[in-house]
Every structure is written in C-alpha cells, then in structure tokens.
Nucleic acid binder design. Sequence first.
DNA 1: AATATCAGGTTAGTATTACTATTGCATAAG
DNA 2: CTTATGCAATAGTAATACTAACCTGATATT
Lengths: 235, 235
Amino acid sequence: MRTQENFSNIQLKINDKVFTKDPCSSDLGKKIIQHSIKLIDELGFESFTFAKLADDIQCTEAAIYRYFDNKYRLLTYHLTWYWTWLEYRITLATANIESPEQRLKIVLHLLTSPLEQEPGIPQVDEAALYRIVIAESQKVYLTKHVDEENKKGLFLSYKRLCKKAAGIVSEISPDYRFPTALISTVVESSYDQRYFARHLPSLTEIPVDQEDGITEYLTELVFKAINNSPKHKTP
Amino acid sequence: MRTQENFSNIQLKINDKVFTKDPCSSDLGKKIIQHSIKLIDELGFESFTFAKLADDIQCTEAAIYRYFDNKYRLLTYHLTWYWTWLEYRITLATANIESPEQRLKIVLHLLTSPLEQEPGIPQVDEAALYRIVIAESQKVYLTKHVDEENKKGLFLSYKRLCKKAAGIVSEISPDYRFPTALISTVVESSYDQRYFARHLPSLTEIPVDQEDGITEYLTELVFKAINNSPKHKTP
DNA sequence: AATATCAGGTTAGTATTACTATTGCATAAG
DNA sequence: CTTATGCAATAGTAATACTAACCTGATATT
C-alpha cells in the first residue's frame, strides 16, 4: 500500500447472470447504476422501487426491466461489484508479501474497512455503496430463492473472496478447523458491528466515530482464534 | 440442565409497543401467531402478506391490522418472544452455578443452538420459529425505521440478552475490551453459519447435519478471544 | 435505393400488495 | 332500555411488481 495506484479505465467483469443486459453497454445502463446507488442508500432497499428510479433518471420503468429482472438482481449487481473490487484490491495489496501473517493483517484490514473514494472510478459513490453493503447485503441471500440464485453463480464473487482469505489462515495455522467459517464470520460481523455502532450502540463497545475500532476488534479475534499473535503493526 | 422443566401455562411478557392489540387476548390473536409462524417459514418474509394470512386463518385482512400495524411488527413480535424465552431459559440454566466459565459455556450453548420443541408451550412450532430467527431476524432492524423502532424499545429483549451474556464474559476477563461486541458477533454468526451450512456451504466448514458444530466453533472462538480455555465439557 | 435487422427504448396495460375509512353487530354497563 | 365499547367485516385506494406489444432510428444486406 505504498503508492497511489491508478485505476482509470478499469472495468470489473461481472457475472452476466446478474443482468439481462449489461448496464455498462449504454448511457442509460450507467445512469441506472449511479442513480440506484444513490436511491437505495437514501430510501433503503424496501422503499426503493424501479418506479422511483425511473422517475429519478427520467426514463420509463420498463426500460429498467430491460437491464435487471427485479430490484434484487440490481442489488446483487452492486454487491458483486463491491466483492469483485475488493478481491482485486486484496490481490494487489498482498502481492509479493512473504509473511502470511502480514498478508492476513492486510486482508483483514481491507475486508473490514469502509470503501474509500477511488479517483480512478469517478462514476461510483463508494461511501454510499459501502452503506448499502452494510445495511442491505444480507438481503440478497436471505430469500426463498437462494438455492436457485446460488446455482446461477450469483454469489461466486463473495465465495472467492472468503476462500482467498481462508487460504491465508490455513497457511498460518494448517490445523485450524474453521478457516472459511472464521472469515465469513468476520466479514458479516464487520457489517453488523458498524450498523450496531450507528443504530444500536448498546450492542457493541466500538464507537461510531472510531474508524478502525472494528478492524482492531476483529483482527485480534482472528489471530487469537488461530493461535498466533500479529507480529507487525499495520502501516 | 438436569431435569425436565415444566413450562405449562407460562406466558412471556412482551413489550406492548410491538402490537396494537395483544394477540394473547383473543382466539383470533392466537391464530394469527400460530399461522403466521407457519406461513412466514413456508413463504419467506418477503412473500408473506396479511392477505395470505387472512386467507389461511379464514378471517379478514382488516382484522389482522387490529393486532399488528404491519408485517414487520408481527415479525418483531415473534423475535421478541424468542429472545425473551431464551433469556428466561438462560436465567434458569445458570442459576446457582458458581463458575463463570461454566455459566458462559451454558449460555453460549443456549445462544447458538436450535430451539427445541417445548411440551409446556404447545401453541408454538419451535422448529419453524427457529428457522424464522435464522433467515429473517436481521430484517427487523435493517430498515430505515431502526432509530424510531429502537426508541420505542422494540429491541430491548435482544439487548438484555446480549448484556447478560456479556456480563459473564467480563466476570471472567474484566480486561477484555469488547464483551458485548463479542456476544452480538457470536449470536449473529450462529444464525449466519447455520444458514450458510444449509444454503451456501462453501462459506463454512460446518456440515448441516452436525447439530452442535456451530456451538463448538463459536465456544472455542469466544474462550480464545477472552484468553481462557474452557475448563469443563458440556453435558 | 430498398429492405431487413436490431439495439434501445416507450405505451399501456394487469394482478397483487399495503393500508384505511366506514359500517355493523354483539355484549356489558349505567 | 339504551348507550357505549369491543371486535370484526366491507369496500375501497394508491402504490408496487411486472408484461405484452409496439415504435423508432441506425446500420447492414441485397
């Protein structure tokens, strides 16, 4: 994490089962992405509708249905984008670092910290997207259609992410029995704890304003769980 | 957990902000409770509607609105019942046990295990209710109305539960900085991991059929986090 | 030049959902 | 007896989720 990377013109490859028509392929599609981040963040996913989005963009509701089958797919698109982007940044940040302990520290930091605004990707409001991840991510799989959606591969990006991090855990402690469970616990917990800090503060000791409190709490939890103390400080 | 307790005629006191009219006060109210557990479990919360419930019970939709303002309140009622019941059982199960380590083990077992069918409470389908807890519990607070609902005290039962367990953690390790965060992490994670085991098994090492795998994983996690090995086996 | 194709939408619907205003009928109190 | 109060039904409305059918302008084909 030494240099300021340049991500201009980067385009993440998103599983094409998520959309019926690639939103990156047209101006309207891009507007759907931008404005839906804004609206889902403002209204919450329950109150968010394609009618309101169409109104905001000044297009018709049916036009949006050309791109996404329903609002769950649109939400899945945003989360897939987030998880894919996260995996890419993890790959970069851990490249050429020998110590698996150091790599795990970096990964835990990335997994549990808010997205920062990326100058190379001006079309995405990262802060709003991260609030969506925190408040809405569970809603894409906590439905009666999980098993179908899963078969279509809609959650592959999340699984890859967890497997990658779990792999480092196993590198450090080959005998630890629950590496993937531990990582998925940590990721979900980072969202929960951030939400609790803001809305149900009696469920956590970490204050809202303490940016890296959650990362600290969870990093300690992981290293104790796998019986290894962190050996280096984060930069 | 030595004897078979008898809970006949028990009635949990539920915060009356949850309902507009106490469902325990009439036959229709009790039917609403019973049938809504069945229907939410079968259909999932998104597809569950008061119209379908009215149809199932053979009453009118408006009659149901007499008891609950909307379906979120009805869900909150079920979760409040679950958390209150859990707290009661925790109180019983830890009474007169000196060792805080032993008490914590008991609490963790109760917090992370499925509800068992209670002969004293025949009107509730505990298995269906627990599936609802797993798949739908987050949906009561992951909304734009959290702060209002929280002010009304709709989440007090959950908070009490976590505080109670966190208190035991602090008894064991007064210096541990995140007792409540740890407990809320564990509770939420027990739901997540059970859901993953069934629907997204590549996110966890614990198999669906291994009943106490999740309790084992989380108990180990907690005792390592607070720097204390469990000293006794669970019964 | 005429025509076929197709990307990229719009129009105009329907069935369902969430919720409410009003009415009616028992039963209990004064 | 009659009046209030509890308890539920009737009959709506506005919003939501989704679909079928059609239009329109640009490019490709013969």
